[in-house]
Design a protein around this nucleic acid. Sequence first.
RNA 1: GCGGGUGUAGCUCAGUGGUAGAGCACUUCCUUGCCAAGGAAGAUGUCGCGCGUUCGAAUCGCGUCACCCGCUCCA
Length: 587
Amino acid sequence: MSTDKKDTSSMEKLVSLCKRRGFIYQSSEIYGGIGGFWDYGPLGAELKRNLRDTWWRAMTREREDVVGLDATIIMHPQIWKASGHVDTFTDPMADCLLTKKRFRADHVDLQSGMVYHFTGATGEEGTKSDVPFAVLTPFGKPRESALKVAKLFYESRGVKTPEPTGGEQGEKVENTRAYNPENGAQLTEPRPFNLMFKTYVGPTATEKDVAYLRPETAQAIFAQFRNVVDSSRVKVPFGICQIGKAFRNEVTPKNFTFRSREFEQMELEFFIKPDEAVEILAGSVVTWSEGADLSAPQPNWGWDMWHRYWVSQRVEYYNSIGLGTDVLDYYWQGPDDLAHYARACVDILFKFPFGTEELEGIAARGDFDLSQHQKHSGKPQEFFDDELKVAAAKLTDEQKEALIQKRIAFEAAKTKGTPLTEAEVRAWFDRLFKGFYVPHVIEPSAGLDRLALAVLAQAFTEEEKADVNGKTEVRTIMRLHPRIAPIKVGVFPLLKNKPELVGKAREVYDLLKKHMNCFYDETAAIGRRYARQDEAGTPFGVTIDFETLGEKGDEFKDTVTVRERDSNAQERVKISDLLGWLLQRLS
RNA sequence: GCGGGUGUAGCUCAGUGGUAGAGCACUUCCUUGCCAAGGAAGAUGUCGCGCGUUCGAAUCGCGUCACCCGCUCCA
């Protein structure tokens, strides 16, 4: 999925600019830093807030069919049991002592054979090792093959032409997972490899009190599904969205903020009717075909139409904040990549300097999550659809049986997971015909920190420019979309030693600052102030000059120079029109 | 977790055992009529951290932390 394209130098420049200008700092830097954690400085905090706001607006405020949620980071541990995170996040891992290859300790093939235990080795030039090592050889293979592996092992530990000691007698061992099946070398002791941060709730800190920092925000949405349904008059199809911190104890945090241990997710769980319910209600189900109209949801849409719809919605969102089709890419997971419960998943990728990597995943997850919580909590997670009940009541027994048979055939054709038995299918339809179903879900899940990194990488531009002395130098411009730029406008008196200019500039600043994030700057030459704001990504600069004071005639009195970051173009705007002029260009 | 690299002023970096430096940035003042102007003065360092070797360590050794690259991992 990731490409070979690497651009380390531009990444380094970006990291450096982020620190210099106050976008992103290393966490706890004065104590040497802490791996995988990053802080946002003054500009970064504003940028992130703007991104968060644009997402929240696009996903819920501007829609009638999505509501918001803000849940806690620490939740009942059972939630992570139900979701499968406790099991998949606690894999014991073991490494091959010879090749360093890592295995899931419980997935190593069972082996039987003779195990030779070595106690160390001596070699030329006085080199030696006391590290014990063991090799498993299949029955019937000579001791020499074990010796060969042991020699390689001690050689790798700096013993020259090693003579391993011990290991004269083989020990018969059956059904062990302690040795590398590829070379027989001993594996390290299995170590738990828990990607969830663990903590204790309450004062006693026993195993009974273990809780986890959430590794994703999605599960809270599922866990509160019933409450939202019961309290907010929503009807399927509808969505619940949430923005919040999530934590994963990553093995290798990487690529600046791209893979962090603490990060912020923006997730939507959009609940839809099962296709069978759509068929009963609308008479037929529309499935995806190339060129289908995705502009407005329709009552007869099947799950894949909804999935495609959300992909197109999300791409539209990225376009609206300046990430165009030229920097985005897609990865459609094939049937083999998909988890057994998932029906489809597409990753929206961004062309980062370090490669093309995931920005957002949009998954069609069926009814897996709510069903899991229904099973584990014992609380029904069904939605009651009275229209469906009415429509189903009008079906003939033959029509009902046809639907059931179709599903039975579908289950029989499944290649992944456990297919439902006929009895289970009939029980499910029994509920469905009464108007009850567990909604299916489309999940667009985006990383806010990744998005911030993407827009910063996208905005980063270097230009060669000659200064007034004719010396060419490289200037950095952050071409952030005005909608997300941390500072919207810089306000500058042309000269700071003229009190009339300064006074007027402060007036303009006071006028604008209630409506947008502004920056007032009167130090240094005007060109330098423009350049500073270019690095901060500020799209507009307003300069109060002598025309403003009326020195060039009344037609210019109370006008200011507005300078645009990307084109350097200047325009004279009346102070009375300035706010409207800016707001129009910032929305 | 493994291997390689890096770590000195806010930034980019120089400094191979003997008083810690440069450019840019920053602060103040003067000057300055639109794209990093000029002049003057000034402030700025646990040399990543710890231990050791040494009369003396940014420099040598060991350990450790962080970042980058490559493995490994990535529900």
